[in-house]
Simulated scan of single mutants.
Amino acid sequence: MKIAIGSDHAGFRYKEAIKKLLTDLGHEVVDKGTDSEAPVDYPVFIRPVAEAVAAGDVARGIVLGGSGNGEAMMANRIKGVRCALCWNEESARLGRLHNDANVISIGERMVSEEMALQIVRIWLDTPFEGGRHQHRIQLLDA
């Protein structure tokens, strides 16, 4: 799967760890930046991830920051993006299962690196349930 990833300075370290995980799992990673822990403005790096997902250039996206809140807000401003803010295994699972999340946001200051990697694994492996949730997704995307 082709996956875009982006972070601000506060999510950079986890971005690099997640890139390695994705590559090790056989995914193609498109890194939209940033490239260090030097302070930056997160919208500059998160918008390109969301736009790549919305355009169909990548199948999914991962965005990271200190809390993940601003990154999720930025991603969700792009039509066609359904970004779930994930802080544990269940939020990742339900983000896919019920909401068909095509982007996830993780806060480096909110979860351990081990949990962040587990969130990504669960999000990748969980299918969208469809059924009663499909109509809700259509309402979101309308």
Rank of each mutant, 00 (worst) to 15 (best):
R96N: 05
R82P: 03
D24E: 15
D100P: 00
A75T: 12
S112T: 14
A142S: 08
A59L: 14
G95M: 08
E28D: 13
L97Q: 05
G66Y: 02
R136M: 05
A92H: 07
R47T: 15
A10K: 09
L64D: 03
A55Q: 14
G80W: 07
R121P: 01
I78T: 14
M115I: 12
R47C: 01
L64P: 00
A50C: 10
A142E: 12
P43F: 14
L85E: 05
F45E: 10
A59T: 15
G80H: 12
M1F: 08
E108A: 14
R47D: 06
F12S: 01
S105A: 14
A52S: 15
V81F: 09
F45S: 06
L21N: 05
A116R: 04
A92D: 05
M73I: 13
I104S: 01
N76M: 09
E28L: 12
V120C: 06
R13L: 10
L22R: 06
A142G: 09
E113F: 02
I3G: 03
I106K: 03
T34G: 08
I5K: 02
R60I: 03
L64W: 05
K2A: 14
V53C: 06
L85H: 06
M115A: 04
A116G: 11
F128I: 05
N102H: 10
P127G: 03
M1E: 11
D125K: 06
F45H: 15
P127F: 04
K19L: 13
V30S: 12
I119Q: 02
T126A: 01
E51R: 12
A84Y: 04
A59Q: 15
S67A: 11
R136L: 07
G6L: 11
L22F: 08
E16R: 14
G6H: 11
P39T: 07
P43I: 15
R96Q: 07
E37A: 03
C86F: 00
Y42M: 10
A52G: 13
V40F: 09
E113Q: 12
I5P: 02
E28F: 08
